[in-house]
Amino acid sequence: MLRIAVQSKGRLFEDTMALLSEADIKVSSSKRTLLVQSTNFPVEVLYLRDDDIPQSVASGVADLGIVGENEFKERNEDAEIVDRLGFSKCRLSLAIPKESKYEGVEWFNGKKIATSYPMILRKFLDKNNVKADIHVITGSVEISPGIGLADGIFDIVSSGSTLVSNNLKEVEVVMKSEALLIRNKQMDEDKMKTLQELLFRFDAVRSAQDKKYVMMNAPKSNLREIVEVLPGIKSPTIIPLADDEWCSIHTVLDEKCFWEIIGKLKELGAQGILVTPIEKMIL
């Protein structure tokens, strides 16, 4: 049985539990239980603090872990990245008081920077030949300049609203981060087989994201033009109708280009366009 370590709270916890649910892996998200076994898949979930996950996987306490790339890089543990999961995206950035004039990274020379990610920050500063004092802090890093604890901060940024509310501005993006699936390097063959099944399910869930299944009736006289408009997975399915001059077309569309394509289809005579969400998609 695979043991997978996940964050016990926060946005990454919510996104992870949603992924497991969509992959039909049933586990309890009770905050009172540290270790929970799935009722329908050979996996058990170990709830941990995010900064403990890389070490737990590297040491073999857990076989797998879902952790932010920022924490994985900061902890620098000997575990292997299996997959990038595409959610919980953010960035690690340097920020300074809004009123400060900023002309480049050399602004930080001689300054004090508050952060929870000293290793990543030190590598960045050394790479740019910047000599700054790193002040390690946990909790609300963004308040540090306002109370005189630091001149700037290095912290996670998602929407940027927290920076704005603390009168700060983002000046340097040091790295981008997303949720990673990591594994212990010593997993045995049976566990690797279970991991492949887990990855198969995750891929099916992600393939369906932002996709719509579209069905429509269309005149055969415009069939070639309609097919050229449709960017299907391979090619659309075309089904004859009782009316010899019409056919039914089924395809999959990406939501990002959905409305633009629907407009073109209507211009080419498509009617009765039916759109449904896709839960899973096996490629």
Rank of each mutant, 00 (worst) to 15 (best):
A79Y: 04
E80L: 12
E80P: 06
E80G: 08
I81D: 11
I81M: 11
I81P: 07
R84L: 12
L85R: 01
F87T: 02
F87G: 02
S88T: 13
S88Y: 08
K89C: 09
K89G: 08
R91F: 03
L92Y: 03
L92A: 08
S93L: 01
L94F: 08
L94A: 05
A95C: 07
P97K: 01
K98C: 11
K98R: 12
S100Y: 10
S100Q: 12
K101S: 12
Y102G: 03
Y102N: 04
V105G: 01
V105L: 07
E106Q: 11
N109D: 11
N109C: 06
N109G: 08
G110I: 05
K111V: 04
K112R: 12
K112A: 09
I113D: 01
I113W: 00
T115P: 03
S116L: 02
S116E: 05
S116Y: 01
S116K: 02
Y117G: 10
Y117C: 10
M119H: 13
I120S: 11
I120D: 02
I120A: 10
L121D: 03
R122C: 07
K123N: 13
K123A: 12
K123M: 11
F124D: 05
F124K: 07
K127L: 14
K127P: 01
K127T: 13
N128A: 07
V130L: 05
K131F: 10
A132Y: 03
I134V: 09
H135P: 08
I137M: 13
T138L: 14
T138Y: 14
G139E: 04
S140H: 15
E142D: 15
E142W: 13
I143G: 09
S144V: 03
S144H: 06
P145F: 03
G146N: 15
I147Y: 11
I147V: 15
I147T: 11
G148P: 03
D151L: 07
D155E: 14
S158K: 14
S158H: 13
S158I: 12
S158Q: 12
S159N: 13
T162S: 14
T162A: 14
L163Y: 06
L163Q: 05
L163G: 03
L163E: 05
V164P: 05
S165Y: 12
N167K: 10
N167P: 06
N167T: 12
K169N: 01
E170V: 01
E170R: 09
V171N: 00
V171E: 00
V171C: 00
M175K: 09
M175W: 04
K176Q: 10
S177F: 00
E178R: 07
E178G: 10
E178H: 05
A179F: 00
A179E: 00
L180H: 04
L180T: 02
L181I: 04
I182R: 00
R183H: 09
M187T: 07
D188Y: 14
D188R: 13
D190I: 15
K191Y: 05
K191E: 10
M192G: 15
M192P: 13
M192F: 15
K193Y: 15
T194Y: 15
Q196T: 14
Q196I: 14
L198S: 13
L199A: 13
F200R: 15
R201P: 08
A204F: 13
A204S: 14
